[in-house]
């Protein structure tokens, strides 16, 4: 682990008009890590990711990516820099085919061969997508859509992948499959992962470090193991 964080939020205040969703949030993600943000409904997890990607602009504070401030950069310029998000609820393009969805992930790229190779790579990770490559995205099952959303994000060749609740609404068996692949992506491609989850148990088991977000503020930060064994966390998020 190097000393320089690849992604850093410094004192971010963010929200929607009069609604203040984030207050003074600071966090660091180092290259190669899997970092989890856990928190209850409405804690501001999605807002954090949307602020990083510039969809929501912060009122105060600065987001640094590879040491550079990125709050002034338009969201569409982030994927070329290696920062990509799999948004909450998948948000794949329902009336485009699986393949077109993937090609759109590679929108900024113009290396045709590389794109084809990466599509193949995604199909290897998620064989079911390969079987359905000509099917409309909207006709996939929830789990397949989540796979497609992750595959689409991988097509941008991310250095940092932001994942918003990949387990949302999925059966345990599919969740395991997806988390295995997330671990793979981290290990094999060296992709840094910032993972947002309500399912604290799952997230902390997959992560190296974790942050706890409560009503817009970071209340705890620790190694994932430590958080997993922290009695307060167990009480609040693991239902003990």
């Amino acid at each position: 682990m190097s000393d320089q964080p690849i992604l850093e939020l410094k004192n971010i205040h963010s929200g929607y008009g009069s609604i203040k969703a984030l207050r003074d949030v600071s966090l660091k993600v180092y290259p190669g890590e899997v970092v989890a943000i856990i928190g209850a409904n409405g804690a501001g997890k999605s807002t954090t990711l949307m602020t990083i990607c510039g969809i929501v602009s912060p009122e105060k504070g600065e987001v640094y990516y590879q040491g550079e401030p990125i709050t002034k950069i338009n969201p569409e310029n982030l994927p070329p820099m290696g920062l990509c998000q799999v948004p909450e609820g998948r948000r794949i393009f329902p009336r485009l085919t699986v393949e077109e969805n993937l090609i759109l992930g590679a929108f900024y790229r113009d290396d045709q061969e590389g794109i084809l190779k990466d599509i193949k790579h995604v199909y290897e990770l998620f064989p079911v997508l390969g079987e359905r490559s000509k099917q409309h995205g909207g006709t996939l099952s929830g789990g397949e859509q989540q796979m497609l959303a992750i595959g689409r994000a991988l097509m941008t060749k991310p250095k940092v992948l932001l994942l918003d609740e990949p387990s949302l609404g999925l059966a345990p068996i599919i969740i395991h499959q997806i988390f295995d692949i997330i671990a793979d992506i981290n290990k094999n491609d060296g992709t840094t992962i910032l993972l947002v989850e309500q399912n604290a148990n799952l997230a902390l088991k997959a992560a190296t470090r974790g942050y706890v977000l409560e009503t817009g503020e970071i209340t705890l930060e620790d190694k994932a193991d430590a958080l997993l064994h922290n009695p307060e966390i167990r009480k609040a998020y693991l239902g003990e």
């Binding site: 990607c53 969809i55 969201p75 569409e76 310029n77 982030l78 994927p79 070329p80 990509c84 998000q85 948004p87 948000r91 794949i92 393009f93 329902p94 009336r95 485009l96 077109e100 090609i103 759109l104 992930g105 929108f107 900024y108 689409r152 994000a153 941008t156």
Partner: peptide
């Protein structure tokens, strides 16, 4: 394709660059 992605989901299109 870019137009269609905007039609389908503008925010997602933006996130994809």
């Amino acid at each position: 394709r870019a137009w269609e992605s905007i039609r389908e989901d503008e925010t997602a299109a933006e996130l994809m660059g």
